[in-house]
């Protein structure tokens, strides 16, 4: 059994896990179950990263996504109450689901059709010369070199972004001194009462 075969087997297995998890995310009514399905998807993607020789990203995927983001989401779910299951059976927005399905099918279908039609070379650009992947240097070292040379400014800006996000999260989540309840809205899709254009206001 060659490496290609192994890779193919791993890919198929992980693809099933990923798609199953993704399907679960949008299928389960309980957000906790959705979150757990998301974990499956993220693990699957991490294995696929490994499959593509991106060991560092696989590790980060597991640590950051499953270890931080999903936990954070679960934390918030628990904070707000577990049983906030939303009513999936009824769709208040007319045609929302149909159009969403068309969009989803269209995006996937067009990409698949494109890949199928192009067939041969999926990429036509020049192969990388400066930041080429080599087997001699460890993956993490390669990423580190590029990250701290070519992309150093972007890195610094993302650092600033993270800082801002943290501050923003603190501000948003802090318990306000005076809570103004939002005006009660009925969630039904009643059209706003049309304002009759005043016929008296014609300009003579």
């Amino acid at each position: 059994m060659g490496t290609d075969t192994v890779e193919a087997v791993v890919f198929v297995a992980c693809a099933l896990i990923v798609l199953g998890g993704a399907f679960g995310v949008i299928w389960f009514r309980n957000p906790v179950q959705s979150a757990l399905s998301l974990v499956a998807t993220l693990f699957g993607v991490a294995v696929l990263f490994l499959n593509m020789n991106a060991q560092f990203l696989a590790a980060v995927q597991v640590i950051v996504y499953t270890g931080a983001i999903v936990v954070l989401i679960l934390f918030v779910i628990m904070l707000l109450g577990v049983d906030t299951a939303d009513d999936i059976d009824a769709e208040p927005l007319v045609g929302q689901r149909v159009i969403a399905l068309v969009i989803a099918a269209g995006v996937a279908g067009l990409v698949i059709a494109g890949v199928t039609i192009v067939g041969g070379d999926l990429v036509s650009g020049a192969r990388a010369a400066t930041a080429a992947i080599t087997d001699d240097v460890p993956n993490i070292e390669q990423i580190g070199r590029v990250l701290f040379t070519d992309y150093v400014y972007a890195l610094e800006i993302t650092a600033v972004l993270l800082t801002i996000a943290v501050v923003a999260a603190v501000v948003m989540a802090r318990k306000p001194t005076e809570v103004e309840p939002l005006p009660q809205e009925s969630s039904s899709m009643e059209p706003p009462e049309p304002v009759e254009p005043e016929a008296e206001e014609v300009f003579d």
């Binding site: 890919f11 798609l19 993704a22 949008i26 929302q96």
Partner: peptide, 30 residues
């Protein structure tokens, strides 16, 4: 090609979920 097709399907599922689900946490997951 399999990777690309997989990511396209995954993206479509996420987009569909975002458009259909109303729970903000689930939307974030999508």
């Amino acid at each position: 090609a399999g990777y690309l097709v997989l990511s396209a399907i995954l993206f479509s599922i996420g987009a569909f979920g975002l458009l259909v689900r109303r729970n903000p946490l689930v939307m974030l997951m999508c």
